[in-house]
């Protein structure tokens, strides 16, 4: 299961999550959603610390964050 889950149908491609990710591991995907938006995507999930800055920044509440439990 992923740490970073996006509901692409909600994403409007505003890019705030991409701009704010401290590890710079978010980028626009290279496919279009049915709404005609290039959604945000994670480029290297192994680096994700589940800090949720992207999810908290998302105006559409489109991102869910999970963390590995130790």
């Amino acid at each position: 299961m992923s740490k970073w889950v996006i509901n692409e149908s909600l994403c409007k491609g505003c890019g705030l999550c991409i701009a704010r990710c401290p590890l710079k591991i978010l980028a626009y995907a290279d496919h279009l959603t049915p709404k005609g938006v290039y959604p945000a995507a994670i480029t290297d999930e192994s680096k994700c610390t589940s800090c949720a800055i992207c999810a908290r920044s998302c105006p559409e509440v489109a991102i869910e964050i999970y963390k590995e439990e130790k």
């Binding site: 740490k3 999810a55 908290r56 509440v61 869910e64 964050i65 999970y66 439990e69």
Partner: peptide, 10 residues
Amino acid sequence: MTMKKVFSRP
């Protein structure tokens, strides 16, 4: 490995 939800829609 179990995954804990950190952030989701209220």
